[in-house]
Design a protein around this nucleic acid. Structure first.
Lengths: 180, 180
DNA sequence: ACGTACATGTAAGGAGTTACATGATTTG
DNA sequence: CAAATCATGTAACTCCTTACATGTACGT
């Protein structure tokens, strides 16, 4: 379970409250592993019950600051080294699989909008990169993940533009749309 | 719900049984949207109950051949055009986020293994490309998705090799590992 | 006859989303 | 004193995975 390890990782960087963790999931981690508070609070309770984290102190509004235990850090390192990340699902590519069902113009329009969606994402990621300054190991790891996002997003934009031009040629080669 | 539309799309290409659909999910669709028979059969029943598909006939071993209805095709086209694909989660990038917790050698080894995992995937995808011949619109759409996979995988490999070299420099700049 | 592939279903549980629910502190 | 934000929790529901369960047809 990845959420569990994301929580351990964030707490390894800095002891903090569930609410504080939530902000990370809505911020930088949102691009990689989004999570809601309704998932975070129960999971923190489970991690605490399992001895992976503990309550380091309480604050104002019934807030609880958690910290990771040595057992938790060990578990996190084990996860990092031993588990091989699985491929996820891609809603976007599933769309592409069935583009033959659309009129050529609609298919091209879909790919065009995919290119611009990815273009906006790229701008966002580049903006984050500009405003960050990787001095310590934590920030450098974050930068690595950011660069991965930028590289794959660039590849996806180039592909979408190529694919859009491809589908526009679909009708030229055989006269009349056979798909309908 | 994407599985629903994947089923509609496959049936739009060709009426077939649940078992036949399962083979697609284990084959080409496995890279994009894997599914088990335990998810497929109930979903087919729901789609039939909703009038999106219907039983076109029965065969040997109590097999049912489904076909998509006009309502189902319309629903599929609507999904294709109107829904914007959402970004998914990335277990792999979550790992990268927390690489600062590892010894530099372990982090570099992780990135090295990520590069070779992606390298094997690339070989697989290139193999599929070699053995396919996109003559009709269906095959051309499939090829588009395949090229997307190849492009992003290539980008990911280049990134992983770059990142591996990056982390190897982490220790040089500041003497002594501060992460532990 | 025996094994493999065909063929379909259900059940239990984990993971994630959306909505419901409550209350405390700070800021203007 | 009102609104925004901080802060935590539960409930219902959907989606997905793994396991349980059963039976048929075909090839050798």
């Amino acid at each position: 379970m990845s959420l569990r390890h994301a929580l351990l990782g964030l707490l390894a960087a800095q002891p903090q409250t569930g609410y504080g963790l939530l902000k990370h999931f809505q911020g930088s981690l949102n691009y990689v592993w989004p999570a809601q508070h309704s998932q975070i609070y129960p999971e923190l309770a489970r991690l605490a019950a399992a001895g992976r984290i503990r309550v380091a102190g309480t604050g104002p509004r019934a807030s609880k600051t958690y910290e990771v235990t040595p057992v938790g850090v060990a578990e996190l390192r084990r996860w990092l080294v031993e588990t091989t990340p699985q491929r996820g699902r891609s809603d976007a590519l599933l769309h592409v699989f069935f583009l033959w069902l659309l009129e050529t113009d609609d298919a091209a329009a879909y790919l065009e909008s995919e290119a611009s969606t990815q273009g906006r994402l790229l701008d966002e990621l580049e903006g984050i990169k500009e405003s960050s300054d990787p001095t310590d190991r934590k920030q450098r790891a974050y930068r690595l993940a950011l660069e991965a996002g930028i590289a794959t997003t660039r590849a996806r934009i180039e592909w979408a533009e190529w694919a859009r031009d491809e589908v526009r040629r679909w009708d030229d080669e055989r006269p009349g749309p056979p798909g309908r």
